[in-house]
């Protein structure tokens, strides 16, 4: 694995004062915190980081993590430690649609490597890169629990399963047309092509 970030992070004080959850997001965050016993609100850190990622452009900047620390009344380093542990948190900017193609055993057995190559060719980027228009980021992922419908990729909340080259082409075209940032927290249910 390669960590996205190393060492200390740059912090932008003026940017920090600008960022703020929407009212709806803040209400959800407060509701999530109430799911845990009094004094244990830190439990809500992962769910709230998901919200922060969706609110602030699909990734977690140091300023965004600092803001989450403030909401939870914990030290910023505690947020950084957690955010950098879990693979769903992007600590660097990403495209509007992040394609995470599963590459573990069953997906590999069903052609995941060819799917990745196909996407690379189609988008003109390599794994880990983002298209120049900021529309797509291509990543590989480890087992996403979709082995019976391999090969598959996840984009935001949606699982796209039983992939073929044609399905991938359609998916890219559809997302381009839609031109919208896709988040894990998006409420749309399974999007089966």
């Amino acid at each position: 694995m390669g960590a996205e970030i190393h060492g200390t992070q740059k912090f932008n004080e003026s940017k920090r004062t600008e960022i703020k959850f929407s009212e709806e997001a803040m209400a959800t965050a407060k509701l999530l915190m109430s799911n845990y016993p009094q004094g244990k609100e830190k439990s809500a850190i992962i769910p709230i980081l998901h919200i922060a990622q969706a609110e602030f452009g699909g990734w977690l900047s140091p300023e965004a993590m600092d803001y989450v620390a403030e909401i939870l009344n914990i030290r910023p380093i505690e947020v950084f430690e957690v955010a950098s542990f879990y693979t769903m948190f992007h600590l660097k900017p990403v495209g509007k649609c992040v394609f995470e193609v599963c590459q573990t055993s069953s997906c590999w057995l069903n052609g995941a490597e060819d799917i990745v190559k196909h996407i690379e060719k189609k988008l003109g980027i390599r794994v880990g890169e983002t298209t120049a228009d900021g529309m797509f980021t291509l990543k590989v992922a480890e087992c996403l629990g979709s082995c019976g419908t391999a090969p598959m990729l996840q984009c935001g909340a949606s699982y796209h399963e039983n992939l073929t080259f044609e399905k991938v082409d359609r998916l890219i075209a559809d997302y381009r047309t839609e031109n919208k940032q896709k988040n894990y927290t998006d409420l749309d249910y399974k999007n089966t092509l």
Binding site: M88, G145, A157, S158, Y159, Y184, D188, Y189
Partner: peptide, 11 residues
């Protein structure tokens, strides 16, 4: 529930 199963969490 694992984070990737967000849509299942909604269900």
């Amino acid at each position: 529930i694992r984070g990737e199963f967000f849509y299942v969490a909604r269900i």
